[in-house]
Design a protein around this nucleic acid. Structure first.
Ligand code: MN
Ligand code: MN
Ligand code: ZN
Ligand code: ZN
Lengths: 139, 139
DNA sequence: ATTCGGATTAGACAAAGTCAAAATTATAAA
DNA sequence: TTTATAATTTTGACTTTGTCTAATCCGAAT
């Protein structure tokens, strides 16, 4: 079901579909996020986007990532104290997090059940549930 | 079971029990963490410790919190992109996180069951499992 | 008193991210 | 086409959180 998004035109359509004006910079940033999906930091995206020619400034990368998060195109992962990771996989899923290397690995949500959570504080609604399995190598 | 730690002497004993030399600064920082437990940032601890008289420098607060984490006296919570929170409750438990206010609320681990997690990547061991229920106020 | 290791400190520094104002680009009117 | 207007991007200064190093301080133990 997960059609590849790896051309500038498919990214542009995705943007239009979310009501985002598909500018050159936004398309390049979207492409960096979706052409080979992974968990990348803003700085990595910045470097990736500007690898060949300079395409977008730091401010634009940060602004655009924030916009993409707002519009539900990517998901923020708060797991490393030093930087935010952006997950181009927006389907519900969880993560292994190697606390030494910083590597993130997806855990599909299918099959994962969480039981016995208490009811929410009154008046509040759930934004989402993050499960992070912190792992490390060795004994 | 949860004996209050709220005197300088009880903090000193806790430090000795963990093989930490109980210096004046460490005792003050420990007291700030344990006398009324909550989820506080390094900056809040720094302010709290130096509220009456100046007791410890920024470097010492950061060094000491890191030491306390190493020795298992407090737990780091990575949940806010801007700062680390230190949890003086080291028993296994989870958290509600209000994404608007930044407020953290404990979820006792009793009764919470997590099912169907895949097996770990080969060669790795679990450091811990964090469940963060992101909430917000209103519809 | 001197020594020595551990602990603390000041302050410079680094990394991640934000912000405001200027400059650029796109869109629409005239 | 010119002109006006709105949207977007850029620059570079700035903030926040945290780290690092070298100097100092402290507390035993000689
Ligand atoms: Mn940081
Ligand atoms: Mn930050
Ligand atoms: Zn993921
Ligand atoms: Zn807690």
């Amino acid at each position: 079901m997960d059609l590849r998004i790896h051309t500038r035109e498919s990214v542009a359509q995705m943007l239009r579909g979310r009501g985002i004006n598909p500018t050159h910079q936004r398309i390049e940033i979207g492409l960096a996020l979706f052409e080979n999906p992974r968990h990348s930091s803003a700085d990595e995206i910045l470097a990736l986007v500007n690898a060949r020619h300079t395409e977008a400034s730091k401010a634009t990368v940060y602004n655009t990532l924030k916009l993409f998060v707002e519009k539900g195109m990517v998901r923020e992962l708060i797991v490393d104290p030093n930087k935010v990771f952006y997950d181009s996989n927006t389907s519900v899923h969880h993560h292994f997090y190697d606390v030494i290397t910083g590597e993130l690995t997806d855990i599909p949500a299918e099959g994962v059940h969480i039981d016995g959570l208490p009811s929410l504080p009154p008046g509040s609604i759930t934004e989402g549930i993050d499960v992070i399995v912190r792992i490390r190598q060795g004994h």
